[in-house]
Amino acid sequence: MRYNVNKAWALDDTTLYLEFDDGRRGTYDMSDLIGVGVFERLSDPAEFRAARSDGFTVVWPCGLDIAPEELYENCVAL
């Protein structure tokens, strides 16, 4: 199944708010990922807070993204 992130923004320096195309809403905590591997770039709070949806997943200006399946399956539903 394909999950599209329609809306996304940072709630703080580690947590995303997400809305999916099927109406699901939730939060996704990235605190375990930030600072690790490619996500090192998101250690800068300004960079993390620049998160947005591209209509498919969450993207950052630095070129990073994260799989929408990961976001959907592991977000805490609201």
Rank of each mutant, 00 (worst) to 15 (best):
L42Y: 04
M1D: 07
G55H: 06
G63K: 04
S31N: 10
V59N: 00
C62Q: 03
L64G: 03
G37A: 15
T14W: 01
Y17W: 14
D29N: 15
A50I: 00
D12F: 03
S43I: 07
L64Y: 00
V38D: 15
L16V: 14
Y72K: 12
P68V: 13
D54V: 04
F48G: 01
L18K: 09
G26M: 06
G37D: 10
I66P: 09
W9F: 11
W60F: 02
S53Y: 05
V59I: 14
T15G: 01
G26Y: 06
F56W: 12
I66S: 07
D65Q: 04
V38E: 15
Y28T: 15
E19F: 05
L16P: 15
E69H: 13
F48E: 01
C62A: 03
I34W: 07
Y17R: 11
F48H: 00
S43A: 06
C62L: 09
C62H: 02
E69F: 09
A10V: 00
R52S: 03
L33G: 10
Y28L: 15
D44H: 04
D44Y: 10
L18Q: 11
V36I: 13
P45V: 03
S43P: 06
D65A: 05
Y72D: 14
A51H: 01
Y3K: 10
W60E: 03
P68Q: 12
C75A: 05
R49Y: 00
S53C: 12
D21M: 04
A46N: 08
D32K: 13
L16E: 12
F48P: 00
N4E: 08
M1G: 10
Y28A: 15
